[in-house]
Computed example of a mutant assay.
Amino acid sequence: MPVVDSDSGEACRVAPFRQIAADLAAEIERGELAPGRPLPSERELTERYGVARNTAR
C-alpha cells in the first residue's frame, strides 16, 4: 500500500496492518468513527484493503 512520505513527498510502502491502523486513527480524528461506536468488522477491513483476515485482526 503506497503512501506519501511526509519528508520527501515520495511514495513508499507501508505494512498493511500499519496502514489500516493509521486509516482508522484518521477516521476517529475526523469524527467519522464516533467514541463508543464499533470499529469496522474484520470482514469489512479485509474487503476494503484486500488483505487476509489475520492482517485485519
Results as ranks from 00 to 15, higher is better:
residue 18 R to K: 12
residue 6 S to I: 13
residue 30 R to F: 06
residue 41 S to F: 03
residue 43 R to I: 06
residue 47 E to G: 10
residue 15 A to G: 05
residue 44 E to I: 01
residue 52 A to G: 09
residue 30 R to N: 10
residue 4 V to N: 06
residue 11 A to K: 11
residue 11 A to R: 13
residue 32 E to S: 07
residue 16 P to I: 02
residue 10 E to T: 05
residue 34 A to Y: 05
residue 25 A to P: 02
residue 49 Y to L: 01
residue 31 G to R: 08
residue 29 E to K: 12
residue 3 V to K: 14
residue 47 E to R: 13
residue 56 A to V: 01
residue 5 D to P: 00
residue 31 G to V: 02
residue 31 G to N: 08
residue 20 I to S: 00
residue 12 C to E: 13
residue 26 A to S: 12
residue 19 Q to A: 12
residue 55 T to M: 02
residue 3 V to R: 15
residue 10 E to I: 02
residue 55 T to Q: 01
residue 51 V to P: 01
residue 41 S to M: 07
residue 52 A to M: 09
residue 51 V to Y: 05
residue 25 A to K: 13
residue 18 R to Q: 12
residue 41 S to Q: 04
residue 45 L to A: 02
residue 12 C to T: 14
residue 9 G to Y: 06
residue 14 V to R: 00
residue 39 L to W: 06
residue 47 E to K: 12
residue 42 E to Q: 11
residue 38 P to I: 11
residue 15 A to P: 04
residue 7 D to T: 15
residue 45 L to E: 00
residue 28 I to S: 03
residue 5 D to Y: 00
residue 4 V to K: 10
residue 42 E to F: 01
residue 27 E to H: 04
residue 37 R to F: 12
residue 46 T to F: 03
residue 53 R to M: 09
residue 26 A to T: 13
residue 38 P to M: 07
residue 54 N to W: 14
residue 55 T to L: 02
residue 8 S to Y: 06
residue 22 A to S: 14
residue 46 T to S: 12
residue 26 A to P: 00
residue 50 G to D: 11
residue 51 V to I: 07
residue 1 M to T: 07
residue 39 L to E: 03
residue 18 R to M: 12
residue 50 G to V: 05
residue 56 A to L: 01
residue 26 A to K: 11
residue 37 R to S: 15
residue 9 G to Q: 05
residue 22 A to D: 14
residue 51 V to T: 04
residue 23 D to V: 08
residue 6 S to C: 09
residue 54 N to Y: 10
residue 18 R to L: 15
residue 24 L to I: 15
residue 14 V to W: 00
residue 54 N to Q: 14
residue 46 T to I: 02
residue 25 A to D: 15
residue 9 G to S: 05
residue 1 M to V: 08
residue 5 D to M: 01
residue 52 A to V: 08
residue 14 V to L: 12
residue 46 T to G: 04
residue 21 A to Y: 08
residue 56 A to E: 03
residue 35 P to Q: 07
residue 29 E to C: 08
residue 31 G to L: 04
residue 8 S to W: 04
